[in-house]
């Protein structure tokens, strides 16, 4: 079961992403909390590409592929863009959740949420593409 979605680097495209994830989660029979969290993770990943991978005034696309592994126990999302090389795992600012409101910084929250919610997040740069792969056990 391989599904694919192509999105432009425009925040208005988030609506298409939401619909794609909702349909996917419904077909997999996932509960409300997991559906919410997968929506959140994908929105954060796609937003990062929209905001940082390409110049804001140029039209570009990214591709999201998703499939399941190990008898539907693991869901995999692979987000690929041809923007500037960026390793979000290493280069995103660190987030300290114990700080007070005054000390909290606004950066890095998206990647932080992706890492917290997903079980396995890897990045590679291959033939001119950023490829972010995110896996989650959906039967645990």
């Amino acid at each position: 079961m391989l599904r694919e979605l192509t999105l432009h680097n425009d925040v208005k495209q988030i609506e298409l992403l939401t619909e794609f994830i909702e349909v996917l989660c419904e077909e997999l029979g996932l509960d409300a909390m997991l559906t919410f969290n997968l929506n959140l993770v994908l929105e954060e990943a796609v937003t990062n590409v929209i905001m940082y991978a390409y110049p804001q005034d140029e039209d570009h696309t990214m591709t999201l592929k998703t499939w399941t592994e190990q008898s539907d126990n693991i869901i995999v999302f692979e987000l690929k863009d041809q923007g500037k090389p960026f390793n979000p795992i290493e280069e995103a600012p660190e987030v300290d959740t114990t700080l007070s409101a005054d000390e909290r910084q606004i950066g890095g929250l998206g990647i932080f949420l992706i890492n917290k919610i997903m079980d396995d997040v890897t990045y590679r740069y291959e033939e001119g593409s950023n490829i972010l792969t995110m896996k989650k056990n959906i039967k645990a």
Binding site: E44, I106, L113
Partner: peptide, 19 residues
């Protein structure tokens, strides 16, 4: 029904303002 980090950042700004 949904919030992501973009929304959290705005709420943090409001929290800082109230402080």
């Amino acid at each position: 029904s949904f919030i992501s980090s973009s929304g959290l950042r705005l709420l943090l700004s409001l929290r800082k303002e109230t402080m």
